[in-house]
Design a protein around this nucleic acid. Structure first.
Length: 542
RNA sequence: GCGCCGCUAGCUCAAUUGGCAGAGCAUCCGGCUCUUAACCGGCAGGUUCGGGGUUCGAGUCCCUGGCGGCGCACCA
């Protein structure tokens, strides 16, 4: 049994053999309670039914107990590093091999690699994605640290105080005089070379993904920079950031299926918001000149590489602006985000170049659809049978309930949108499919609405807002008829919103930007789940 | 929701036509004072996602369920 590396010291640490302390995963306390049975060596077979993982966890729990017995707290209350690993790296960019600085620092991080060379140990700490080596001759440590060293595992949180130096090979290192355990890890880290590749495990255990996969960390750093840039741009333009309800009595502001929930005290159903639009416009009615909100929307619809049930939208409303102003704003937002998150407007997305240099092309939905369909005569007042014929020709499903606007939109979405790679403002959407947008100032059949399309998908949706309450009421009524005809996503008439409109709205430019998709574009990732820390998954079965 | 593909040790992956489930890393034991995917030697580790079936014999074939990925549909 006496096989610990450290012997003959007052507090020498013996790790009890695993089989002396079978651990019931459901009962932490059992780790302390010796079970009956012979004292077998830790290398002996684990008890029946115990997996390798159980064995590793049990061994580490035993180390926790042994450390406590030796007076070392495995989960201490506080630690004060004098420098981050990044600061140490920045302060000593090019030490000569074998250099000694005489500078003593205290650093901390997760132990991610342990290389043993006789009485010399190389420990690699990682903090915020930055690695730093501890050059660690056992002799240089005080007694307590030496005891601890023998019971450190990859995955533990470790603090170290010592001199900054460089190894013979020139690797910047800290040579610790003391080591401090900051938090014992019980579970093993994935393969140090391959990392964690199983996508399901990466999403379900994002914390592990973040420890071992630098790419995961990089994506979320881009995401953070994008959010910062968007807020900075909005703030500088005089927009006030607000927070409107997530719990809506009436789902509105978009055509989408909501999640339903129930409030017990009120005994009423509420809907998770599908869009903040109506509340934000009520703020404009209330005299807030420029507002924006960055927050989650929830839509109870299909999931895909581009759709998560909860997703982040930037929505903004600006009094006096029209959709041309909003296009300028949208372009500036994307450019600011790209510049600050990745430092360039010339991107590569999934192997193809994309330029955000601008100005982005502006083209009408009808024109683009005419070109793509090969029907120059395509128009909203064509006989419905002719429109259906064109849809059939291009294998676009045309429901009997669809009017001309919806049919043209279907054609656009099939023929044009997937093929628009460079950023394009597609303008002037049909009235029929735009119940909250203002009628075009000169064109019949369409609204002053645009979507920003790039890389074959939508990034933003915006319009000169509808501010005429009588027109709005008619549009809601048209939606109600569509709903009655079976359109599940048609909007519900929102009387409190109409009342707000009747208070009076100034001309208003409104915008919605899919933030997750912007992050996908800038971070060059194909799956929306890679830009959401904890994407929606089916619950794990236990 | 539909279609296709995947699921083997803690991690990354093998396993011939249906014929004894293996390797590397990690763990555990021993050795080593300049490593950095350390190395050398040794021990151990499996409900091959669950259930059922075919077969002398199933990781492999069939049915069924679970979870995931991709595509379609829907949306942003």
């Amino acid at each position: 049994m006496a096989r610990g590396r450290v012997r003959g010291r007052p507090h020498h640490l013996e790790v009890p053999a695993v089989t002396d302390h079978p651990v019931d995963p459901a009962d932490d306390a059992s780790a302390e309670a010796p079970a009956s049975g012979s004292a077998t060596d830790a290398s002996a077979a684990a008890p029946a039914g115990e997996s390798k993982l159980d064995e590793i966890v049990a061994t580490r729990r035993a180390k926790v107990a042994a450390l406590r017995d030796a007076g070392i707290e495995p989960y201490p209350v506080r630690f004060r590093p004098t420098a981050t690993l990044a600061e140490v790296r920045d302060a000593y960019p090019d030490l000569e091999p074998d250099a000694e600085t005489g500078d003593v620092v205290t650093v901390a991080g997760r132990l991610v690699a342990k290389r043993e060379m006789g009485k010399l140990r190389f420990l690699v700490l990682r903090e915020d994605g930055i690695d730093l080596q501890l050059f660690c001759p056992v002799k240089a440590l005080d007694d307590a640290s030496r005891d601890l060293l023998g019971h450190l595992d990859v995955g533990d949180w470790v603090g170290a105080t010592g001199e900054v130096m460089a190894s013979k090979k020139g690797e910047l290192s800290v040579k610790p005089a003391t080591l401090t355990l900051l938090g014992k890890g019980l579970r093993p880290l994935p393969d140090k070379w391959h990392g964690l590749t199983d996508t399901e495990a990466r999403f379900r255990q994002r914390e592990v993904d973040l420890v071992v996969n630098p790419e995961a960390r990089r994506v979320f750093e881009v995401r953070s920079a994008v959010l910062r840039a968007l807020r900075a741009e909005m703030d500088e333009r005089g927009f006030v950031e607000v927070e409107t309800p997530m719990l809506h009595p009436i789902p509105g502001g978009a055509m989408a299926k909501p999640f339903v929930t129930h409030h017990n005290a009120l005994d009423t159903d509420l809907f998770l918001r599908i869009a903040p639009e109506l509340y934000l416009k009520r703020l404009i009615a209330g005299g807030m000149r420029r507002v924006y909100e960055i927050n989650r929307n929830f839509r109870n619809e299909g999931m895909s590489t581009r759709h998560n049930p909860e997703f982040t939208m930037l929505e903004s409303y600006a009094a006096y602006d029209d959709y041309h102003d909003v296009m300028d704003l949208t372009e500036a937002l994307l450019q600011r985000a790209a510049t600050e998150a990745i430092g360039t407007l010339e991107l590569s997305y999934q192997g193809r170049p994309v330029s955000l240099a601008g100005p982005f092309r502006r083209a009408s939905l009808l024109e683009l659809t005419r070109e793509a369909s090969g029907h120059a005569e395509l128009d909203y007042d064509l006989p419905i049978e002719d429109l259906r014929a064109i849809c059939d020709e291009h294998e676009v499903a045309s429901d009997d309930a669809f009017g001309p606007g919806k049919l043209v939109l279907e054609l656009f979405e099939k023929l044009v949108e997937p093929n628009l790679w460079d950023p394009t403002f597609v303008i002037d959407y049909p009235i029929e499919v735009s119940p909250l947008a203002r009628r075009h100032r000169s064109e019949p059949h369409v609204t002053e609405r645009f979507e920003l399309i790039a890389t074959g998908r939508e990034y933003a949706n915006a319009f000169s807002e509808l501010i005429d309450p009588a027109d709005q009421r008619e549009r809601f009524e048209a939606q109600a008829r569509a709903k009655a005809a079976g359109d599940e996503e048609a909007m519900v008439l929102d009387e409190p919103y109409l009342r707000a409109m009747e208070l009076g709205l100034p001309p208003t430019g409104g915008l919605g930007v899919g933030v997750d998709r912007v992050v996908m574009l800038l971070a060059d990732v194909a799956n929306i789940r890679d830009v959401i820390l904890f994407p929606t998954l089916r619950p794990e079965r236990t």
